[in-house]
Design a protein around this nucleic acid. Structure first.
Length: 499
RNA sequence: GGCCCCAUGGUCAAGUGGACUAAGACACCGGCCUUUCACGCCGGUAACCCGGGUUCGAAUCCCGGUGGGGUCACCA
């Protein structure tokens, strides 16, 4: 390897730039993930920037919500609004002077002009043009205003917006890391669009360019919905004399009905998945597989493994429909294979919300919870299911499954069978898996009944359910005292039914 | 409607001119294991959008349709 080859190229800098108008949805999370993966893979820097130039749609709590969701996903950033960095501030609302100055440069160079049309006028114009079946584009009426005309407008108190003087012919080519070269017909693709609103705030296509350049962003990785914005932005790059970054437009994530993701599609916010008991590891793993593949048969992969395999040129070009079923399967894989401590840690809040475990559990209480979790975790898919399937270990306050009652508590002689089981368990010492099972097998043999004839009613008596971990696991975890009490209760229940 | 992108089973996907009688995963269906449900294991159903080219040969390259998606705001 020559000296030249080992000199690092300029560090990669990527950014995720959410708008604080709502919560982080899975599409945004996937974009953040790809940026993060690319930064980790290349040893680059991951920047978080807040695109909060829309004062109308701004939601005060949204930014903090997005930050905390990203943190929960463990997609940490190197520079951002909360922690600063050498290219701050990282919220667009705090960068107004920059946009104003750059817009001024454009104005002076004749690459931008003031527009005094009101939103109403523009909307009306669009309407008329569309009625005629023509393409609605800005008329250009303010592009060549004389000094006098402009002064007259100013005197009327009209605050102008700023428009870019865009080329009306030729083509603009976007070189994209995932799509190759995409060329746009300038005339048909955009017009003299607004770069500064009359309230002094920049619009997206302007602020984005100024920030990406001034923040030293080398690779703009974003969703495909921005592909058709890119030629417009390139116009600004050229007008301002900025060099172009590399662009990579990753495929969109669509709802199961093939439409763009929105609230009406059920859970789409990462927070909702969190509440439903999905692990961040599983969500990240699933999202990585949406639009990207390691190229072989691997599916369940830790984040480090994903980082090591990740590459933008193995990102697919077509949109992906997200499938909760597969996410759920991956989640189940993590729940049954992750170190038990990790599962315990994540499920604890779900247990506490159901008052299964106290807020400050003592060592003994935790040890019990761990045994329960370990017994249950391989047969559930989410933390919510895990908590539900564990409830009877913590509380005897449950009713019997109806079908189970019909099937196992109505048979002739059940009370007798349960009583014999109870007596056997009462005598077992030590109360271990082997000994309890041995005792039960003896009852089964002695009564000349099938194993199920004792086992099924006992399961129902102890848990209220017909499904769950192995019966003797349940018995041993619960302990002798609780088992006897629950069997007594069940025997009484069966007798009461008969009467 | 203009512009742009995309197109392998229901879904995610491998595939970059011959190894394709098209991998793997989820889901679904069967079987095994088991005291139950899961897990696990074994097996099955199911796809190259259509039409033209190019080529000895096309899922793969080209063109045209069709379909889906995105975008056309003083939203981002």
């Amino acid at each position: 390897m020559t000296q030249k080859e080992i000199v690092p190229m300029d560090a990669i800098r990527v950014r995720f730039a959410p708008s604080p108008t709502g919560s982080l949805h899975i599409g945004g999370a996937r974009t953040a993930l790809f940026n993060w993966l690319y930064a980790r893979k290349t040893g680059g820097v991951f920047v978080l920037r807040l695109e909060d130039t829309d004062t109308e749609r701004f939601i005060a709590a949204a930014a903090e919500g997005i930050f905390s969701t990203l943190r929960w996903l463990a997609l940490g950033w190197d520079e951002g609004p909360d922690k600063g960095g050498p290219f701050g501030p990282y919220a667009q609302s705090e960068r107004k002077p920059l946009y104003t100055a750059e817009a001024q440069r454009l104005l002076e160079a004749g690459s931008a002009f003031r527009c005094y049309c009101t939103p109403d006028e523009l909307a009306q114009h669009r309407e008329e043009v569309r009625k005629r079946g023509e393409v609605a584009r800005y008329s250009g009426r303010c592009r060549h205003l004389t000094e006098d005309e402009r002064r007259a407008k100013e005197e009327q108190g009209i605050r102008p917006a700023l428009r870019i003087a865009a080329p009306a012919e030729g083509t603009t080519v976007v070189t994209d890391l995932v799509r190759g070269e995409v060329s746009f017909d300038n005339r048909a693709s955009f017009d003299d669009y607004i770069i500064m609103k009359s309230n002094g705030m920049p619009t997206y296509n302007f602020a984005c360019v100024v920030d990406d350049h001034t923040m030293g962003i080398t690779d703009v990785i974003r969703a495909e919905e921005h592909l058709s914005n890119t030629p417009k932005q390139i116009i600004v790059y050229h007008a301002l004399g900025y060099p172009l970054p590399r662009f990579a437009h990753v495929p969109m994530i669509l709802a199961p009905d093939r439409s763009k993701l929105s609230k009406r599609h059920g859970a789409t916010a990462v927070e909702e998945f969190r509440e439903q008991g999905y692990l961040p590891e599983a969500i990240l793993n699933y999202l990585a597989l949406l639009g990207w593949s390691p190229g072989d048969e691997r599916e369940v992969m830790g984040i480090e493994e994903i980082v090591s395999m990740f590459s933008l040129d193995s990102v697919s070009k077509h949109a992906a429909i997200y499938d909760v079923k597969k996410l759920t399967w991956i989640n189940a894989q993590y729940l049954s294979n992750l170190p038990i401590e990790r599962v315990v840690e994540t499920v604890l809040p779900f247990f506490q919300a159901r008052n299964l475990v106290s807020d400050q559990p003592a060592t003994q209480e935790m040890e019990y919870a761990i045994r329960v979790i370990d017994a249950v975790r391989s047969r559930i898919h989410t933390l919510v299911e895990l908590a539900d399937a564990s409830a009877y270990f913590f509380s005897a306050d449950f009713s019997y499954d109806e079908k189970g009652v019909r099937k196992h508590f109505t048979k002739e002689g059940v009370a007798q069978v349960l009583t014999r089981g109870r007596e056997a368990l009462a005598r077992v010492e030590p109360f271990t898996l082997e000994e309890t099972e041995k005792a039960y097998r003896e009852v089964i043999g002695g009564m000349e009944i099938s194993g199920g004839a004792l086992i099924h009613p006992t399961r129902l008596a102890l848990s209220g359910r017909t499904v769950g971990p192995g019966l003797f696991d349940i018995i041993v975890i619960l302990g002798k005292e609780k088992c006897l009490a629950r069997l007594d209760r069940a025997i009484a229940f069966v007798n009461a039914c008969k009467a």
